[in-house]
Amino acid sequence: MGRFAALALCFAVTACASQVKAPDYTAFKAAKPRTILVLPPVNHTPDIKATSGLLSQMTLPLAEGGYYVIPVTLETETFRQNGLSVPDEIIQVPAEKLRTIYGADAVLYTTITDYGSVYHVINSNTVVTASAKLVDLKTGSVLWTGTGTASSAEKNQNSGAGGLIGVLVNAAINQVVDSLTDESFVEAGTAANRLLKVGPPDGLLYGPRSVKYDTD
């Protein structure tokens, strides 16, 4: 019986360890942001399409979560008219100025650390990873932080079927497909949804346009 008790305790400890710890939402609940300005992500990868590829897919999960998001086209054109087009420069704009120009309650700063395909002899994998923080434009307080990643390997887990020849053939096919399509853009969509997920245990709180608002 002692062995079974120890085994049960081990499973219980493992289950507890695997649970995601909820962040402190105190500042978030006090700020109650309604409108969010999503700044162009800072790109720390060699792919020049990373910023636009991710930015174009970040509005939807926030809007579906109950927030009004400043239109990306309006934001981009406004920055351009003020001589700003590089994300590294845009993130230096003072919070008070962003609030005055756009009327937003909070701003989202994002950094891309992975964007693109890595080719090997027997496989190829496209990975997109980004981190973000939501900042209150009135107080400068960080309301929430998160990370999101997506990989084409998730869809190719069965690529080993058929032995070594099967693996090589599958890798060749994947490389051809990736060269003809923008697989990074596809993975960016998944990464954006994971990064900006709304709801427990560690996502953004629901916005005022959601039926779940104030239920967290």
Rank of each mutant, 00 (worst) to 15 (best):
L84V: 06
T147K: 10
I36M: 08
F11C: 04
G65K: 09
I101V: 15
S117A: 14
K32T: 05
F185H: 10
E75P: 00
T59A: 14
D202P: 01
K21E: 12
F28C: 03
Q92N: 14
C10Q: 10
T149M: 12
I91L: 07
K133M: 05
S159D: 08
A63Y: 11
S56A: 15
R34P: 00
T215S: 10
E75I: 00
Q175P: 02
R194T: 08
G189W: 05
A153L: 10
A63N: 13
E64K: 14
S152T: 15
T110E: 02
L108D: 05
T111I: 03
T126H: 06
E89T: 12
G65Q: 10
L39I: 06
A50E: 02
T35G: 05
G65R: 11
A95D: 14
T110W: 03
G83P: 03
S184K: 06
V20G: 00
T51A: 07
V176Q: 13
G2K: 13
D136F: 07
G199K: 11
Y206G: 02
Y67K: 07
A153E: 10
N193P: 00
T45V: 11
I70L: 14
C10S: 13
A12D: 01
L134R: 01
V177H: 04
T59H: 04
G65M: 08
T51V: 02
D105P: 04
C10W: 03
I165L: 12
V121M: 08
Q92C: 09
G163P: 00
V42I: 06
A27L: 09
T190H: 13
M58S: 01
V121W: 07
A50H: 02
G65T: 09
G207W: 04
A12C: 09
S117L: 10
L108M: 13
V20S: 09
L37N: 10
L62C: 06
T139D: 00
N158P: 00
G162I: 11
H44Q: 11
D88Y: 09
T59R: 12
V72G: 04
G162T: 09
A188H: 09
P200Q: 14
P200F: 07
F28L: 03
N82D: 07
V198C: 10
E183F: 01
S18H: 11
Q175R: 15
G83S: 12
D136N: 15
R99L: 11
Y213Q: 08
K155I: 02
G140C: 06
D47P: 03
A171D: 11
A161P: 01
G66Q: 14
L9N: 07
V42H: 02
M58H: 04
T78P: 00
T73S: 08
P94I: 06
A188G: 04
T35A: 13
P201H: 14
